[in-house]
């Protein structure tokens, strides 16, 4: 086991903001060992937006938990700027699938709750909260309670709460998965705008292939049993952010075929076997 000094020396050579180095994770479910993640290797650079897609059970949410530091019982290393992640920190924020707003606090207080440990003064905190509510377009709802908001609005508050600490990494765990299709499309645009505006490095976990292609600079495709990375596809500049563009559709179809879904619905298994070989 290398000491912390050795790790940081090693980390200095590589300039990756986030590095997931050969991470494997096992769970014990009802006395049986289940391999949730197997030899995950992924490096994320500053300012990048990485989408992770995969069927449910491929371990993509588990991976986010490990990056957050909620669970440190795994093999391999997760490093931020060369330092191993030991615990949750305000440099890594998360938006969960459910908004997880505290129902007894109003919108403003929910966002401000994330700044409790920031060490900032009251005035500074107030300003940050106002700025971020403005960023998600909810200035008018600062005093509203979560029960008074629609699902899309509540999720926007959750996004404001995640960003108010100005985190280095924004982790998104199927953040739009529980919303209706129309709200989802609208929030995808908003998410893109907000993340660009803040310059945050983002890792999005989703099972919506369109969303992954639309938002990601790179798309990580995971396969289940055990959870592993099948491939990583770059989203080139040639793919404009237009959901109807032929290049967009081509890339989406490629992702779908990696996930074992063919356009015509036949040959899916054969395609998957060919890809995996």
């Amino acid at each position: 086991m290398t000491g912390p000094v050795a790790i940081s020396e090693q980390g200095r050579g590589q300039s990756h903001a986030l590095e997931i180095a050969d991470v494997s994770k096992r769970f014990s479910v009802a006395g049986r060992r289940v391999q949730a993640l197997s030899h995950i290797r992924l490096a994320v650079d500053d300012g990048e937006f990485v989408s992770i897609v995969g069927a449910s059970g491929c371990g993509k949410s588990t991976l986010l938990r490990l990056v957050l530091g909620l669970d440190t019982d795994y093999d391999g290393d997760i490093r931020v700027d060369g330092h191993r992640v030991e615990r949750p920190g305000l440099d890594r924020s998360i938006v969960f699938q459910e908004h997880r707003l505290l129902p007894w606090l109003n919108v403003e207080a929910n966002v401000a709750a994330a700044l409790r440990q920031s060490g900032l003064g009251a005035a500074e905190r107030g300003e940050l909260v106002r700025d971020h509510l403005h960023l998600v377009g909810l200035d008018q709802f600062a005093k509203a309670y979560p029960a008074q908001l629609s699902g899309g609005m509540a999720q926007r508050v959750a996004i404001a709460r995640a960003l108010v600490t100005k985190p280095r990494f924004l982790l998104l765990d199927e953040p739009l998965g529980a919303l209706d299709a129309l709200t989802r499309l609208r929030l995808q645009d908003e998410l893109q705008r907000i993340v660009r505006h803040e310059g945050t490095t983002a890792v999005l976990v989703t099972h919506d292939v369109d969303e992954a292609v639309y938002l990601g600079d790179r798309i990580v495709i995971m396969h289940p049993h055990p959870g592993r990375i099948a491939t990583i596809l770059p989203v080139t500049d040639a793919v404009s952010r237009d959901r109807s563009d032929p290049n967009f559709i081509r890339l989406r179809d490629e992702v779908l075929s990696w996930l074992g879904v063919s356009r015509t619905g036949i040959d899916a298994d054969a395609e998957l076997a060919r890809r995996s070989a």
Partner: peptide, 19 residues
């Protein structure tokens, strides 16, 4: 899920109790 949120927001014992 709220306990997890407290962990993510790096709440100490006092903040967890109060908030």
């Amino acid at each position: 899920s709220y306990r997890e949120l407290a962990e993510v927001l790096t709440f100490g014992w006092f903040d967890f109790a109060r908030i």
